[in-house]
Amino acid sequence: MYVDMGNLAADAVTLDFSVAGTTADQWNVKVSQIPCSSNYRAPNKCVKYYTGASGTVTSYGFPGNTLLQNQNYESCIRQEAGYCSILWDQSTVTPPADAFDLTNAAMADQATNNVITACGKSFVKIPNAVLGPTSAPITAFCGEVFGVEAQTVANSFTSSTLPFTLSTFTGAGAANTLTTFDPVANGYSLDYVQQAC
Rank of each mutant, 00 (worst) to 15 (best):
Leu166Phe: 11
Phe146Glu: 04
Ala185Lys: 06
Ser37Met: 06
Asn155His: 14
Val57Gln: 09
Thr92Asp: 11
Gln110His: 09
Ala97Thr: 14
Asn44Pro: 03
Lys121His: 12
Leu68His: 06
Tyr40Phe: 15
Val3Thr: 12
Thr161Ala: 12
Ala105Lys: 08
Thr161Val: 15
Ser85Thr: 00
Cys46Asp: 06
Gly173Cys: 01
Asn72Met: 11
Ala24Leu: 12
Leu162Lys: 10
Ile86Met: 09
Pro95Ala: 15
Leu162Ala: 12
Glu74Thr: 15
Phe17Ile: 13
Asn176Gly: 13
Tyr49Asp: 08
Trp27Asp: 03
Asn70Met: 13
Thr66Gly: 00
Asp109Asn: 10
Ala42Thr: 12
Asn39Tyr: 11
Asp16Thr: 04
Ile77Phe: 08
Val124Trp: 00
Thr158Lys: 15
Ala140Met: 01
Cys142Ile: 03
Ala175Ile: 00
Lys48Pro: 01
Cys36Trp: 10
Thr51Arg: 08
Pro127His: 06
Ala129Cys: 07
Pro133Ala: 13
Gly187Thr: 01
Glu149Gly: 04
Met107Val: 04
Thr22Gln: 09
Thr14Val: 15
Cys46Asn: 08
Asp101Lys: 03
Leu15Gly: 04
Asn104Cys: 13
Tyr2His: 13
Asn155Asp: 14
Thr112Ala: 10
Ala136Tyr: 08
Asn155Tyr: 15
Ser59Ala: 06
Phe181Cys: 11
Val47Pro: 00
Leu102Glu: 02
Phe169Val: 05
Tyr83Ser: 05
Ala97Glu: 10
Val29Ile: 15
Ser85Pro: 05
Ile34Leu: 10
Gly173Leu: 02
Phe169Gln: 02
Gln151Thr: 14
Asp109Arg: 01
Gly55Asp: 05
Tyr73Leu: 13
Gly55Ala: 08
Lys45Ile: 03
Asp25Glu: 14
Asp182Phe: 02
Ser32Ala: 10
Thr94Cys: 00
Ser122Pro: 09
Ser54Phe: 12
Ala24Trp: 12
Thr103Met: 03
Ser59Lys: 02
Tyr50Arg: 09
Met5Leu: 14
Ala99Ser: 13
Asn7His: 10
Ile86Tyr: 07
Pro43Gln: 11
Asn70Cys: 08
Val29Trp: 06
Gln33Ile: 08
Ser189Gly: 09
Phe100Asn: 01
Thr158His: 05
Tyr60Pro: 00
Ala53Ile: 15
Pro137Met: 03
Gly82Met: 02
Gly173Trp: 00
Ala154Thr: 07
Gly187Ser: 07
Asp98Cys: 02
Ala99Arg: 06
Tyr50Gln: 12
Pro43Asn: 05
Thr168Pro: 05
Gly187Met: 03
Gly147Lys: 02
Ile34Trp: 07
Thr22Asn: 11
Pro95Glu: 04
Tyr192Phe: 15
Gln90Glu: 15
Gly82Ala: 09
Thr134Phe: 13
Val47Thr: 11
Asp16Val: 05
Ser18Gly: 05
Asn44Trp: 07
Ala111Phe: 04
Ala185His: 01
Gln33Asp: 13
Ala140Lys: 00
Gln79Ala: 14
Asn65Leu: 06
